Amino acid sequence: MVSPRRSELSAPRILFAGGMAGIFNWVVAIPADVLKSRFQTAPDGKYPNGFQDVLRELIREEGVGSLYKGFSAVMLRAFPANAACFLGYELTMRFLDWWGARA
């Protein structure tokens, strides 16, 4: 068996796995999210070539580091939010497995 059965996973392990998944997800996703937010809040017609124009302007005016604006806030939220989500999913699946075994 590659991994333990669902019923063998402890809550702390599930919380840790979910939290780390959230962290790794946002490390990769935050630049795209910054670009999307900048594009959405721009006046109509400011970026005629879409995200390419947003990326060029952002890097030219604020540097590459600007792609990680809000990093601290996102990381503070990512771990607990995703840990809770993973735990909620796993507990729901355990409940459904238990409920199905009774039927």
Rank of each mutant, 00 (worst) to 15 (best):
Gly22Gln: 00
Met93Ile: 05
Arg56Met: 08
Val34Arg: 09
Phe86Ala: 15
Pro4Gly: 07
Cys85Leu: 13
Leu91Gln: 13
Trp98Asp: 03
Pro80Cys: 09
Pro31Phe: 13
Trp98Lys: 08
Ser10Glu: 12
Asp53Arg: 01
Gly88Glu: 03
Val34Gly: 01
Tyr47Trp: 05
Arg60Glu: 14
Gln40Cys: 12
Leu9Ile: 12
Asp44Arg: 06
Val34Lys: 06
Phe86Arg: 02
Ser3Tyr: 14
Ala83Cys: 12
Val2His: 12
Pro48Ala: 03
Phe51Arg: 06
Met75Val: 11
Glu8Trp: 05
Gly63Leu: 03
Lys69Gly: 06
Thr92Trp: 08
Glu61Tyr: 06
Gln40Asp: 14
Asn82Asp: 03
Ala103Glu: 10
Glu61Ser: 11
Ser10Asn: 11
Ala29Met: 15
Gly70Ile: 04
Lys46Asn: 01
Arg102Cys: 04
Glu57Ile: 00
Leu58Asp: 02
Val54Tyr: 00
Lys69Ile: 07
Asn82Leu: 09
Gly45Cys: 10
Ala83Leu: 07
Phe39Asp: 00
Arg6Ala: 11
Leu76Asp: 03
Met1His: 14
Lys36Tyr: 13
Pro4His: 10
Ala81Val: 15
Ala32Pro: 00
Asp33Val: 09
Ala103Ser: 11
Gly50Cys: 03
Leu87Ile: 00
Ser66His: 08
Met75Gln: 12
Ile30Met: 15
Gly63Ala: 09
Leu9Ala: 10
Met75Gly: 00
Val54Met: 02
Lys46Val: 05
Gly100Asn: 15
Ile23Glu: 04
Glu8Gly: 04
Gly100Tyr: 02
Phe39Asn: 09
Phe95Pro: 05
Asn82Met: 11
Thr41Trp: 01
Ile30Val: 12
Ser3Leu: 14
Ala17Pro: 02
Lys36Thr: 09
Arg5Asn: 07
Val54Ala: 01
Ser37His: 14
Glu90Leu: 15
Gly88Asp: 05
Tyr68Glu: 03
Ser37Gln: 13
Val27Trp: 13
Gly18Gln: 03
Arg77Asp: 07
Met1Ala: 14
Ile59Thr: 08
Arg38Leu: 06
Arg5Pro: 01
Val2Lys: 11
Ala81Arg: 07
Ala103Cys: 06
Asn49Tyr: 08
Ala17Trp: 01
Asp33Ala: 14
Leu91Glu: 11
Thr41Cys: 10
Asp97Leu: 10
Ser72Leu: 14
Leu58Pro: 02
Thr41Tyr: 06
Lys46His: 12
Lys69Arg: 13
Lys69Glu: 10
Arg94Met: 11
Trp98Gln: 07
Pro80His: 07
Val28Leu: 15
Ile14Asn: 01
Phe24Pro: 00
Asn82Lys: 03
Arg38Met: 09
Ile23Pro: 10
Leu9Glu: 08
Gly63Tyr: 07
Asn49Pro: 05
Ile23Arg: 05
Ile14Glu: 12
Val2Ser: 10
Val27Asn: 08
Leu35Met: 15
Ala84Arg: 08
Ala84Phe: 09
Ser10Val: 06
Val28Tyr: 13
Ser10His: 12
Pro80Trp: 10
Lys46Arg: 14
Pro48His: 02
Pro48Asn: 01
Ser72Ala: 15
Glu62Thr: 08
Phe71Met: 14
Val74Asn: 03
Ala42Arg: 06
Gly45Ile: 02
Cys85Thr: 11
Gly19Ile: 05
Leu35Ser: 01
Phe16Tyr: 11
Lys46Pro: 01
Cys85Ser: 12
Ala11Gly: 04
Met75Cys: 09
Phe86Asn: 02
Pro48Ile: 02
